[in-house]
């Protein structure tokens, strides 16, 4: 039976995909399991968006639905050229709310420089869905000279993050149900397309890119380590995090490395290119707080963390839903 944990992006999600989808949908484009499938010179991706609450500090479901999909295109180096949007609407949703979401989608698509070119709408009876679910798909054009992929990661690469971690997940969870933590807790949801464009225009040799959404920085790097059979070592002290976000994580018993981001970029590239990449990132508002947080070293494949204390621990895939705990 399917549990909420199967949608968490962690180990259960992986199992679900591996055991129930991949055996039936066998083909080379899917097999790579990258953020987007690559078909000749096109990148193609789709994502369904459900979030409670639909409006949260720093963003909303509409902005998320556009950003998430264009970011998946950007992560394989593609320039988005068109999006689709499909709405499943629960009867009773107000026009006012729908309009707010649609306007937000339109503004976000403009930021990313991509048109929403096709769509669909279904209305379902009350209770059949929660408010509105949005599914977007996107097509992007691949530049053969700029094609990051986890399999290109090599020993000697460094890991860069474009800004602070855990902002989105904490902004959403602290608005959900009863956990009312306030403060500078704002989602980072944003289209990363301009940032990736800048990296591409700078002609940098980028080995891999990933936007660390569900499952956070840890999940993304675990996947990259597995795909490239490399050992990635993170330096906990270097990982940027807003102090209010850290405090909220401590209150709720969550590990910020496993909390979702929606406007951050992980970049793996040769050490010799690191300073140039940082310069490009920092010159853009989305990358102001960019920083080197780790490196690819020789040794057993996987993700390790040098803790602030100086100890070492191995980071593993998270198993299920992130729940606030008291213990």
């Amino acid at each position: 039976m399917i549990l909420l944990g199967h949608g968490s992006g962690g180990r259960l999600s992986h199992q679900l995909i591996k055991e129930h989808f991949l055996p039936h949908f066998v083909n080379p484009a899917l097999a790579l399991l990258e953020d987007s499938a690559v078909l000749d010179d096109l990148a193609f991706t789709t994502d369904a968006y459900v979030v409670t609450p639909r409006f949260f500090p720093g963003g909303d479901l509409g902005r998320l639905a556009v950003s998430g999909t264009v970011n998946d295109l950007a992560m394989v180096g593609a320039e988005p050229i068109g999006l689709s949007a499909a709405f499943i609407i629960e009867e009773g949703l107000s026009f006012e709310e729908l309009d707010r979401l649609v306007v937000s989608m339109s503004l976000t698509a403009k930021e990313a420089g991509v048109p929403i070119v096709t769509g669909d709408t279904k209305v379902v009876p009350k209770g059949a869905c929660d408010g509105v679910f949005i599914t977007t798909a996107g097509v992007g054009r691949i530049d053969p000279g700029f094609r990051p992929s986890p399999v290109k990661v090599r020993t000697g690469d460094v890991v860069i993050i474009s800004g602070t971690v855990a902002d989105h997940g904490i902004a959403v969870i602290t608005r959900r149900e009863a956990i009312r933590i306030e403060g500078e807790l704002s989602s980072d949801v944003a289209p990363l397309v301009p940032l990736v464009r800048a990296l591409r225009d700078a002609g940098l040799e980028v080995h891999a890119m990933r936007d660390p959404t569900r499952g956070g920085v840890a999940q993304s790097l675990i996947e990259i380590a597995a795909a490239s059979q490399s050992r990635i070592v993170l330096n906990e002290k270097a990982i940027p995090i807003k102090s209010a976000v850290r405090a909220a994580c401590e209150l709720l018993g969550l590990d910020p490395l496993y909390v979702a981001n929606e406007g951050k970029l992980l970049l793996l590239l040769p050490d010799a290119r690191a300073q140039a990449a940082l310069k490009v990132l920092k010159s853009h508002p989305l990358g102001e707080a960019a920083r080197i947080i780790g490196a690819v070293e020789t040794g057993q494949p996987g993700l390790e963390l040098i803790t602030t204390l100086g100890g070492t621990r191995r980071l593993r895939m998270h198993s299920g839903e992130l729940l606030p705990r008291i213990c």
């Binding site: 590990d255 963390l305 803790t307 602030t308 204390l309 100086g310 100890g311 070492t312 621990r313």
Partner: peptide, 9 residues
Amino acid sequence: AARSGLHSL
């Protein structure tokens, strides 16, 4: 202890 890698120290 586990998160900070205390055992390894």
